[in-house]
Design a protein around this nucleic acid. Sequence first.
DNA 1: GCCAATTACTACACGGGTGTAGATTCGCAC
DNA 2: GTGCGAATCTACACCCGTGTAGTAATTGGC
Lengths: 190, 190
Amino acid sequence: MPLEERREELLDAALRVLARDGYGQLTISAIAAEAGVTRPVVYDAYGGIDPLLHALLDRTQQRATDAALALIPAGGVPVELDRWLLEAADGLLQAVQEDPETWGPVLGLADGAPPAVRERIESTLVVLRGFVSDVLRTNLGPETELDVEVVAHSLITLAQEFARLLLAKPDEYPKERLLAAYAGMLDLRR
Amino acid sequence: MPLEERREELLDAALRVLARDGYGQLTISAIAAEAGVTRPVVYDAYGGIDPLLHALLDRTQQRATDAALALIPAGGVPVELDRWLLEAADGLLQAVQEDPETWGPVLGLADGAPPAVRERIESTLVVLRGFVSDVLRTNLGPETELDVEVVAHSLITLAQEFARLLLAKPDEYPKERLLAAYAGMLDLRR
DNA sequence: GCCAATTACTACACGGGTGTAGATTCGCAC
DNA sequence: GTGCGAATCTACACCCGTGTAGTAATTGGC
């Protein structure tokens, strides 16, 4: 098997191990076994667990960031805030529902995440919070009394938690219930 | 040193290791070294890493639960909702600020948390959410259209995130800023 | 058909954490 | 001071994951 294809296959295997057993079991041995090859194959393809994890994080971060940014309007474009908040939440939950294996680890649902993972997720969140802050600022007007950064942080935190609920207990918390509750909370403003 | 005292000392040592190096480094060896004894001492006191972790979780859960429940009014007692939400947040942030080593791991700030820890935290949160739901129900009236469970869940999630911010970046997010932003968000309801 | 390169495997040494058995030290009763 | 018991240490065998060296098999060019 050519090297690039093998690399992708190993990442897929690693993601399966991760989703099933958590980071604590994400070893070269486990990945090799999951992919049905021997350990030297993994060493030849990636050189160790760190480069492999790095590559896996790159791929996952790319997917998650792309999906999330697609929900955010371009800078400076005015939107109906409440409507956008709802649509963005809807879009995120939809994306999460459609690709649970990518989003589970991203949302911290994989056990035993090491610092590198935490940092990767945090760096993505920083970017997202910046974009959401921008949207809030341009649409609340410059004289708002709200602490836009903290509000953006809170919104993203809530979105993440809703996504976690959707993944962990889809029966108790289906997308519709979460969105309805979210809309209800937004409605308090009136 | 008598057994009970030794046990406490070992838990303290374990907590220090945990706060400093995360769960990945929380081994019998590391705990023994941190406490300045040899491994057999730890085995004699606890029998292994699992019972020790269990004991540490018991102690931490007790402390955190006590502190959190102290902020929640007894069942059925009516309160001024906005005022209570603010005071409870204030109280929580205060408690967190005063005992960071207990709260850091509770808030998921220790790297590499294994499933047992996740489950322990989740079980505590379930209880807390129940209490907050009760407070909301008795004070919003029975005919509210809000999804009380999801709102309670959201409030607690936000409180946790604020506490994390306070612990992780106290300079950027001091208690006063967080509480002011929180008050600002509540004010949107008027 | 044959050689070379690529790919993958078997086999080994190493490190670090685990759990336990046996030796040692210390304090206290007599 | 002697002997007993608790507490602690030293030392060993074990497991499992790591990383690598050397070997076998497969594929493409000539």
